[in-house]
Design a protein around this nucleic acid. Structure first.
Lengths: 190, 190, 190, 190
DNA sequence: GATGAATGAGTTTTCATTCAT
DNA sequence: AATGAATGAAAACTCATTCAT
């Protein structure tokens, strides 16, 4: 019998899992939790996904795609007045935090490094694609930048670092100070 | 009265767990695995530690302490010729990576954010203490630095970001480029 | 090697176990708990007692003996003015409750019926001996009593029933009412 | 493995647990024992009940409800000729004993007092409800009774006491004598 | 398409008991 | 006389997965 997959059910599942992952992490959610949240049976879950890993894979793709899309949208809206401050502000202050996905971000990374190479490679691929798009924004915001690629890379590191800070609820020095420091990199020097 | 715990067994356990955590992550190791690796019974494990969390707690303390110690040692050895390049090099290239603890670092963070507040607060406390020590190094390496605190904070973010990169085996742009970029922050500008 | 048993240590153990049993029940206390409360090692515990059951056995003997002694002492003190009310009052209101041992009483009974026949027979033997002594008190308090034996037996049932009420924290009707009801049994009727 | 669909799995479990509890007590039965007796897996047990306490809770409700029902049925059948003797006889001789549940009764009480307040309150609630129904029987059997409430309470104490006697296999004086003694309470006095 | 009963291998944890010192 | 390190068997509980319906 050929399977006819109902897209709506799949999306329902993903949305529910996303919420659960963001709350309690990948390892802590059981398929029972997911089924209950979706108001479907565990059997149905297995009709749409062949394993728990399968679900997580889809979540990762969705997560990075959404981060990217929301970023691109923002850049598009502000392309006229893209000052370094505003650019860095959206990256830092609103970056992973804006989308309220810091926790999921870290949880997913953790899942990737537990041994699932396919998952990890997919995440890296998507992450790298985003970095390339970040470069475009960097060039727009910092006219005099010398090495936009390295700068974009640095921003990605900082985003990951901030995600960790966010989930760890560490002492944050404040956006203004952070922006002030990083801004210098893109500015002309003597 | 006062229990004299066999230090060797406790250290044996910690070392084994460290290796296992670095290999397969906190959630993936069972107490059975640990006991087998140490060649002791599960009962003995509980003689030394009252729970799995207890063990992880000790691991975290050990992990951050060691990172700190090795860093301080390095700074001490190089205090005569602490150029910005060398300083950033040890932080970035050798930071978490040097000690081959990136994976454990991320795994431990993940463990912290799963809901164990005590664990998380301890990690934050230790991490903040290290940041303060980093500030001292920053001041030594960058004579003209304006805001050493923010810079040290940035470095911590980058270290976390690099740890993620390391465990995810993402495309790394190379230390030289990264150092070049970050160095600018500490330099005088027009 | 002949064992030289230190009476004081044994008494220390018994006292501690008694307190623990009264608080959390026989099954819930571990030898570790006992050792900690006595401030001795588990090994020492095994020097004085060959098993957990051994300890419980001693506790039971001590428990019933003390109940009996305190009762006899009280009867002796009040033999001059032993009204039915006072007698029933001490049996009911102060019976098991007086000695604050209701919980232990029930816990011990439970232990006995779990399969340990030796324990059970010992308890019964002691309990029956006490019943016989109760009969003497009954005869003193109720001059016109017809069947003192049955009455004493009834009192034993009530004491057990009250012990259960006590530990279950059920709704108690009040001593006065209970005394009033039971008193009738011992009184002349038309 | 042959999967035999059993619609009455929950009832099977309860019945098996009841038998085991009556035989060896609550603490002594493991979920493994139960599963084996029901010929199901431990997993299945947890499919129907979320914990051991959950099972015991159901057992308690069932136990008290059944005691009550059988008593009410009996009263209904004998309402025409409810002499004091017959009434007391069914309460004492057949009360807890009749239904062969004395052991379970005590075991359940013991479970309640070990710290499980919810269990205890439930038991008390049910027990009190039964006492109220006993009062009705008392009024029917003893026309001249003054304080039916206290008398019913006394009967409850005696039932508990008899349950203990039963499980402890103590020396029983005989129903006739006990009935004779208690009967006096309900009779007119000078 | 969808279900939910059933599973079994896995997990963490407890604890009475032993024994060399 | 006393200890405490070590154990192993058993406990309660979890959960991804299967499959007949």
């Amino acid at each position: 019998m050929a399977r006819t997959i109902n897209k709506n059910v799949k999306q329902d599942i993903l949305k529910s899992v996303e919420e659960l992952v963001a709350k309690i992490g990948v390892n802590s959610i059981s398929l029972g939790d997911i089924a209950k949240k979706c108001d479907i049976s565990k059997g149905t879950l297995y009709y749409y996904y062949s394993s728990k890993d399968d679900i997580i894979f889809d979540i990762i793709v969705k997560h990075v795609k959404e981060l990217e899309e929301e970023y691109l949208e923002w850049i598009e809206r502000h392309k006229e007045d893209l000052t370094p401050e505003r650019f860095l502000s959206v990256i830092f202050n609103k970056g992973v935090k804006l989308f309220d996905r810091a926790k999921m971000h870290i949880f997913l990374i953790n899942e990737c490094i537990k041994g699932n190479d396919i998952l990890r490679d997919k995440f890296n691929e998507l992450w790298f694609a985003w970095q390339k798009k970040l470069e475009v924004g960097v060039l727009q915001a910092f006219k005099d930048i010398e090495d936009a690629e390295s700068f974009a890379y640095l921003l990605m590191l900082i985003i990951d670092g901030l995600a960790i800070q966010e989930v760890m609820q560490g002492k944050f020095i404040g956006d203004d100070k952070l922006i002030e420091v990083v801004k210098k990199i893109g500015e002309k020097q003597c």
